[in-house]
C-alpha cells in the first residue's frame, strides 16, 4: 500500500497552530521568537509558554510539532542557537529542522534521541549530500529546495537514505534557495544569517498618485498600478528596468501549488508535503490545510481517479502571492 505523505503546515503563533491541527495537518512547524529561524519578523513566533501550549495541543490531537532552528549561527551568538536546540529537546518537540552542520553535530551528540530534519536552508539537492548528513548526524528527513525538476526529485528519492519532504504550496524562492544572499546587497542582512530577506525596518510602503510603491532601504523595488496585485517586498520579486522596460527580471510573485501532481508525488514515495507561510495568518493556515487535507485524502482513496477540484484550486489561488500558481522547477524538463 502506498504511504500517504504527511501534511506539514506552518504556524507563526498559537492560533495558527490550532488552525493547522483542527483542519487536518499531520505536523505543524514553528519557530522560536528570535533569529534562530528563517521567519524572524516582529511579533511573530513562539515564546516558551506558547511553545509548550502548542506542543500540548498538537500532541493531544495525535499530531506532531517540528521546530525550525534553520539559520546559521555566528561565533559570537552560537549559544543562542544551542539554547534553542536544548529547549526543543526539553519541550518534547517531535523534530528539529536544522541546516548548520556545527549545530547538527551539537544536537546529535547532546540530544541523541532528538529527531533531526535537514532544512531547506542547507540546500542539499542530491542524494550524496543527504548520505553525508545522514552518516554524520543521523538526520531522518530532508526538506529539498524548490529547485529540482520532477525527474531529479524521483532520482533523489530513489537513492536517498532518509525521508524526503517537498514543498507543496506557498510563495516561491529564487533558484539558489538556501544559499541566497541577494537581499544583503541592499539591507546588509540575509535569510541565512538573520532569518529575514527584507527586514521590516528596511521596508517602506507608499501610496502615491502613480500607485503603491515598495522600497527596500530607500531603493524602489516595485510600483503597482491601481488594482494590480501586490507582492512581498523582497529584492528578488521586484520589477527592474531591463532592456528598457520594467520586468520581473529575477523572480515573479507567484505561488507553488502541487495539486496537479499529487498522485505522482505519492507514487514516488514523498514522505511529507510542506506548506510555506509561517508569516501568514490563522485564516490562511486553516484554508490551505483544509484544501490540501481533502486533496490528499481524495488521492489516497483512489489515486488513479484523482482530479483537482475547482474549489481546492480556487481556495489556494485566492491566498497566493500574485494570486496565481505555478509548478515551478518541478516542470522544467530541460533540467
Amino acid at each position: 500500500m502506498t504511504r500517504i505523505p504527511e501534511l506539514v503546515c506552518p504556524a507563526g503563533a498559537l492560533p495558527a497552530l490550532k488552525a493547522a491541527v483542527d483542519n487536518g495537518a499531520d505536523a505543524v512547524y514553528i519557530g522560536f521568537r528570535d533569529d534562530t529561524n528563517a521567519r524572524n519578523f516582529p511579533g511573530l513566533n513562539f515564546g516558551p509558554d506558547d511553545a509548550r501550549k502548542g506542543v500540548e495541543y498538537a500532541h493531544r490531537a495525535g499530531k506532531k510539532v517540528l521546530l525550525a532552528v534553520n539559520t546559521y549561527p555566528q561565533p559570537h551568538n552560537w549559544p543562542i542557537w544551542t539554547a534553542a536546540v536544548d529547549r526543543a529537546a526539553a519541550l518534547g518537540l517531535d523534530a528539529v529542522i536544522m541546516a548548520d552542520p556545527g549545530l547538527l553535530r551539537y544536537a546529535a551528540s547532546r540530544h541523541p534521541d532528538l529527531r533531526l530534519h535537514l532544512s531547506v536552508q542547507a540546500s542539499a539537492t542530491n542524494h550524496r549530500a543527504l548520505e553525508f548528513y545522514h552518516q554524520r548526524f543521523g538526520i531522518r528527513r530532508a526538506v529539498l529546495p524548490r529547485v529540482l525538476s520532477l525527474q531529479q526529485l524521483w532520482h533523489t528519492i530513489a537513492h536517498s537514505p532518509v525521508e524526503i519532504e517537498v514543498f507543496g504550496y506557498g510563495s516561491l524562492c529564487v533558484m539558489v534557495e538556501g544559499r541566497c544572499a541577494l537581499s544583503s546587497y541592499i539591507t546588509g542582512r540575509s535569510p541565512n544569517g538573520s532569518g529575514v530577506c527584507s527586514p521590516a525596518e528596511a521596508v517602506r510602503w507608499e501610496e502615491t498618485p502613480q500607485g503603491r510603491q515598495s522600497r527596500l532601504n530607500g531603493v524602489l523595488i516595485d510600483r503597482y498600478g491601481p488594482g494590480e496585485a501586490a507582492g512581498y517586498p523582497t529584492l528578488c520579486k521586484g520589477r527592474y528596468h531591463t532592456e528598457g522596460r520594467p520586468y520581473y527580471a529575477i523572480e515573479e510573485p507567484t505561488s507553488l501549488n502541487v495539486l496537479d501532481i499529487l498522485p505522482e508525488l505519492v507514487q514516488h514515495g514523498v514522505a511529507a508535503i510542506k506548506v510555506e507561510g509561517r508569516q501568514r495568518s490563522p485564516a490562511y493556515v486553516a484554508s490551505v490545510t483544509r484544501a490540501l487535507r481533502t486533496a490528499l485524502d481524495t488521492c489516497a482513496a483512489d489515486p488513479r481517479r484523482y482530479q483537482v477540484r475547482e474549489e481546492w484550486a480556487a481556495a489556494l489561488d485566492r491566498l497566493s502571492e500574485g494570486q496565481c500558481h505555478t509548478l515551478g522547477a518541478y516542470h522544467r524538463p530541460w533540467q
Binding site: G12, L14, F41, G43
Partner: peptide, 8 residues
C-alpha cells in the same frame, strides 16, 4: 498584524 494573528 502579528499581534492580531497571535491573539489566542
Amino acid at each position: 498584524k502579528n499581534l492580531l494573528d497571535g491573539l489566542d
